[in-house]
């Protein structure tokens, strides 16, 4: 105690105190926000919400019910957040064209402004996961850490090279090449369809950024060994050696044993 009181007047004391204060508040803030931030995004204007409401009533309410409270044919969207809307509408999964094992990716039905308005409307109903900030989807994280997280949490469904894989009864996990970082992030926080939710307590925003970095890096790298044959593993390699490899060799054997004219 004495030592501290003596150093209290040290010129650096004020700075140390300031740092400590910052650390404590920052830490508290971090603790408070580990579980999915339920902060309502304030970047939406009132007109966005109003326009979104109209779009929703016209295009979504048939299944999701008036006020997005859900119906027989579609779940309630109260509390799913802007991220869910941006993912489902932005990748064209919603509005769904037909019932199937799962909603599939198709060309987006709404433009960016409309998607934003819909997101604003749904986000206004109840707090939920927001659209990620640019800093966590910039692809500048640690690819190696992202790879480890990807293999543990994602590769079992999406394949180690993110080429996709089968689920039960006609459902499948899609390939991730060509999917934007924002949509990947949103899928992780909202858990669309049968995908589990990976909230911020499970994989931190930093970890999600690493995963996106890893995916973008392997996608832009391509395979060092040449064409990747779909990155599907031994099955496509086996097919290739039987069809192309043996095929070419048989062509050679026929030439070799034929008579020249």
């Amino acid at each position: 105690m004495k030592a501290i009181s003596q150093k209290r007047r040290h010129p650096l004391a004020a700075i140390a105190l300031l740092l400590m204060g910052l650390l404590v508040t920052g830490g508290l803030y971090a603790v408070a926000t580990t579980v999915n931030q339920a902060k309502a995004d304030t970047t939406y204007s009132a007109s966005d919400v109003a326009e979104g409401g109209k779009l929703f009533a016209a295009n979504c309410a048939t299944c999701h019910g008036v006020g997005a409270s859900g119906s027989q044919s579609g779940p309630s969207l109260v509390g799913v957040g802007a991220a869910a809307v941006d993912f489902q509408v932005g990748t064209g999964r919603m509005p769904m064209q037909m019932n199937g094992p799962q909603a599939e990716k198709k060309p987006a039905q709404f433009n960016e402004a409309q998607t934003k308005q819909l997101a604003a409307y749904v986000a206004s109903l109840a707090p939920g996961p927001a659209i990620p900030e640019a800093s966590v989807i910039d692809g500048k994280g640690d690819a190696a850490k992202g790879g480890e997280l990807f293999r543990t949490n994602c590769a079992m469904c999406h394949n180690a090279a993110a080429a996709g894989g089968a689920l039960t009864r006609g459902k499948f996990a899609p390939a991730l090449a060509g999917v934007s970082g924002q949509h990947i992030y949103e899928a992780m926080v909202t858990g669309p369809q049968n995908m589990p939710v990976f909230n911020d307590a499970n994989i931190s925003p930093e970890g999600k950024r690493d995963i996106i970095t890893y995916l973008k890096q392997i996608e832009s790298n391509g395979s060092p060994g040449g064409a990747d044959l779909g990155a599907l593993g031994p099955v496509s390699e086996g097919l290739f050696v039987w069809i192309a490899g043996l095929g070419v060799i048989i062509a050679f054997t026929i030439w070799l044993t034929s008579r020249t004219s």
Binding site: F198, A201, N202
Partner: peptide
Amino acid sequence: ARDPDGTPIKAADVTIGSAFH
């Protein structure tokens, strides 16, 4: 604890629909 980093998990972290390894 979480795989692979080994940090312990609180019950409150596990929201409905979550899957932790």
